[in-house]
Design a protein around this nucleic acid. Structure first.
Lengths: 120, 120, 120, 120
DNA sequence: GTGGTCTAGACCACG
DNA sequence: GTGGTCTAGACCACG
């Protein structure tokens, strides 16, 4: 569920950050649901607790989760999370689209790319 | 012409790589045109020669430029370069689009984003 | 009446401590009035009895309440309590004011902030 | 210059954060000025490099400094920094003032406290 | 040399 | 048991 990929060059804590966002957007993690404890998750996926904590802390400062010292970490308002996820995705998409247009690809071609994506 | 931005988190050699591609796609760098010598360019834009070297090496590895030992580095076939640039842009764009759709944004919204981009 | 907020980063026992002070200052808790028993209050507001115990201990240590073993805990002399509350508030206020002046904010601006506060 | 106090219960990285803000506000650190390298500062004040890095990273995400991996860390726009420092100070001051008024202290008394503060 | 990531392991406050 | 802080120390990419 929280699997990360150590082969890839994306920092582990960043993969974890994105994974939480994804799980919320897909409705697998619900509002106020408790996340695994830092040490538990670290053990589960075989990484250091400090790395999990770094991910959790970034999630917290972005308003995606909230942590209660001594109690645990919980998913914040789903609306906020979905909003953040969409903004991040739209920004990345817009940048890539500008780059593509900038390199001479036509808008038509980009429209086609989108239509050709089949989601599993 | 080869200006780079050290404030940004993207490695300088990568910025330089992209800039060469961009200059070719825009027709500013022509086929077989010679690139500035490593040390000259490094001095011009105030960066380490090793960094320019690395950018040139990656450009050569990807068939975008070719080097003649003792003479200099030159832009390879424009068609090849444009092809590579397009492939890279399409790949990045596709990835961003999948991510966006994955996060629940509709294809319609993505189409709109593309149509709303006004290129300068 | 003794409601606390677990979402906030302030320790629960500290919130409880402040709340008692507040209730006394506002005249809701009277001199010699008995406080709820530790276990009762803990159950009422859904927190750990140890936490209530800690708050009560600190309140007693500071002379705000007094405990009669086997009987219960009671509000000490109102004058004393109000005095303590004022001292704490003035100290915190003075520290914040020094910090503000220290950071270059003018005394005039601080005076304005005070005048602009409308109490509900 | 960057001295921290280990006796106090405020986290070291937080003390360091505040100290940088203070040095900028007082004009001791100038715009674009380079901060000591993480490892150098850590050695200087006798703490772990990770702790210094945590302070620097928080400073960066708040727009107070900017770090260039491989180059160093620098003070961001002074205006931004002063703005942030003032906002933090005003917020803390306002909270303390509300608390004080709430506990029954008069506005007049608060005005007097401010006038009585003599800055060194 | 510089910042960034990660591990291993310790201790603390709070509940 | 839980998150938060901190140390010691390693390795990496970039320049």
């Amino acid at each position: 569920m929280f699997s990360i990929d150590t082969r890839v060059r994306i920092p582990i804590y960043e993969q974890l950050y994105k994974r939480v966002l994804e799980l919320v957007v897909k409705g697998i993690l619900k509002e106020n649901e408790q996340l695994p404890a830092v040490r538990v998750l670290a053990k589960d996926i075989g990484i250091n607790p400090n790395t999990v904590q770094k991910a959790y802390q970034e999630l917290e400062r972005d308003g995606i989760i909230f942590s209660q010292p001594g109690k645990g970490s919980y998913i914040a308002s789903i609306d906020t999370v979905v909003d953040i996820a969409h903004k991040k995705a739209i920004n990345a998409f817009t940048d890539a689209a500008i780059d593509a247009l900038d390199s001479g690809i036509s808008k038509d071609d980009l429209h086609k790319v989108i239509d050709d994506i089949s989601l599993k």
